[in-house]
C-alpha cells in the first residue's frame, strides 16, 4: 500500500448520518443519533465511550449485523441500505471479520475448522478451506495448534484463533469488540500485537471497541462516543511502548479526515505527514460539531438542537449559512 498518495481515499466502510432507535417497553430509545464517519482501508481505529454510549450498536451497524433506522452505510463502497438479509449476510461474510470479547468459538470444533467456518458460507470447498485455515492460524502464530479444541487452548490462544477466523476470508475490515476484555494483560497484549501486526502487514482495517484506555491508546485514531454521538475523533500518535512500530508516517494520510466531511479528501490535509509528535500526543482533533464547539471535548449530548449539529446534514463547507 503506497503512502502519501493524492488519490481520494477509499473507505473500507462509511457511515452517513446513521441513526438507530429501539422500541423498549413502548419507549423509543435512540442508541445512535446521527453518526457520520469513514474508516479508511488499512486504518486502525479505537472506539471508546461509556456504557450506553452506543458503541456496540455502532459496531453492529458497521458489521452489517444490524440495519440503521435511517442513514446510509457503505461497505467497500457498496450501499447496504438496499440489501436484503441475504445480501447483508454476504457482505458480512466477505467484507467483515468479527472478533468478540468472549471469543465465540465452537466448543466441539477444533481450531482449524473454527477458523474455516466463514468459508463454509462462501461455498469454498473443504480442502481449500482447511488449507486457508492453516495459513490463517500460522499467521497468528498458532500453526502448532490446528487440531486443538478451544478448551485445550489458553484465553489468548482462543482469541488468536478468533482473529485467524476473522482474517481467513480476507475481509476489508476487522471489527473487534473488547477483544482483550476477557484476557489478562499479558494475553491482551499478545492479542493486540497480533491484530496490529495483521493490520500492518495485510492492510486490513481494524476497528476496536474498548473500555481500556491503554488499549485505545494503541490505535492510530480514537473515536469517543457518548449518548449516541461521536464526541471526538482524533488522530493519535500510537502510545506503543514496543520500539518496533514504525508505522506513523504511513497511515496518517487516510486517517486525517473529518468524520463529517470525510468524503472530501482534502479535508484532512493539514494533519498530514511530518509530525514528530511524542508518544500519546494527539495529532489532530476533530470535533463532530463543526461550528458551535471547536474545542476538543464538546458536549453535544444535551446541547440545543442536537440533530443538525453532529450530522452530515450540514457539511463543513465554508460560508454555508446555518
Amino acid at each position: 500500500m503506497s503512502t502519501d498518495t493524492q488519490a481520494p481515499p477509499t473507505y473500507a466502510i462509511e457511515a452517513v448520518d446513521v441513526r438507530r432507535s429501539y422500541a423498549m417497553d413502548g419507549m423509543q430509545v435512540e442508541a445512535l443519533r446521527g453518526i457520520t464517519l469513514g474508516i479508511a482501508e488499512g486504518e486502525y481505529v479505537a472506539v471508546t465511550g461509556p456504557s450506553g454510549s452506543g458503541k456496540s450498536t455502532l459496531m453492529h451497524l458497521l458489521g452489517a449485523l444490524d440495519r440503521p433506522s435511517s442513514g446510509r452505510l457503505l461497505i467497500g463502497g457498496q450501499d447496504t441500505t438496499s440489501l436484503d438479509d441475504a445480501g447483508l449476510a454476504r457482505v458480512r461474510g466477505s467484507e467483515i471479520g468479527f472478533v468478540f470479547q468472549s471469543f465465540q468459538l465452537l466448543a466441539r470444533t477444533d481450531a482449524q475448522d473454527n477458523v474455516a467456518l466463514p468459508l463454509v458460507y462462501r461455498g469454498v470447498g473443504r480442502t481449500e478451506r482447511r488449507q486457508r485455515a492453516v495459513a490463517a492460524l500460522e499467521a497468528v502464530g498458532l500453526g502448532h495448534r490446528l487440531s486443538h479444541r478451544p478448551t485445550q487452548l489458553s484465553g489468548g490462544e482462543q482469541q488468536r484463533v478468533a482473529i485467524a477466523r476473522a482474517l481467513v476470508g480476507e475481509p476489508r475490515l476487522v471489527l473487534a469488540d473488547e477483544p482483550t476484555g476477557n484476557l489478562d494483560s499479558a494475553n491482551g497484549h499478545e492479542v493486540l500485537n497480533v491484530l496490529e501486526q495483521l493490520n500492518r502487514e495485510r492492510g486490513v482495517a481494524v476497528v476496536l471497541v474498548t473500555h481500556d484506555a491503554d488499549v485505545a491508546a494503541r490505535a492510530n485514531r480514537l473515536i469517543r462516543m457518548r449518548d449516541g454521538l461521536v464526541v471526538a475523533d482524533e488522530i493519535q500518535r500510537r502510545q506503543e511502548s514496543r520500539g518496533e512500530q514504525e508505522v506513523q508516517g504511513r497511515r496518517t494520510p487516510q486517517l486525517a479526515r473529518t468524520p463529517q466531511g470525510g468524503r472530501t479528501p482534502q479535508g484532512g490535509r493539514e494533519t498530514d505527514g511530518g509530525q514528530e509528535a511524542q508518544h500519546g500526543q494527539v495529532l489532530a482533533i476533530r470535533s463532530p460539531a463543526p461550528s458551535p464547539s471547536p474545542s476538543p471535548s464538546p458536549t453535544p449530548s444535551r446541547s440545543p438542537a442536537p440533530t443538525p449539529s453532529p450530522s452530515s446534514d450540514v457539511p463543513d463547507i465554508p460560508g454555508q449559512p446555518r
Binding site: 449485523l65 438479509d85 449476510a89 454476504r90 458480512r92 461474510g93 467456518l117 458460507y121 462462501r122 477466523r165
Partner: peptide, 16 residues
C-alpha cells in the same frame, strides 16, 4: 442461539 448468531455474523444467510 449464540452459535446461530455467530454463524450469521460469519456470513450465514437465513436460508443457510
Amino acid at each position: 442461539t449464540r452459535e446461530i448468531g455467530l454463524r450469521k455474523a460469519l456470513g450465514a444467510r437465513q436460508r443457510d
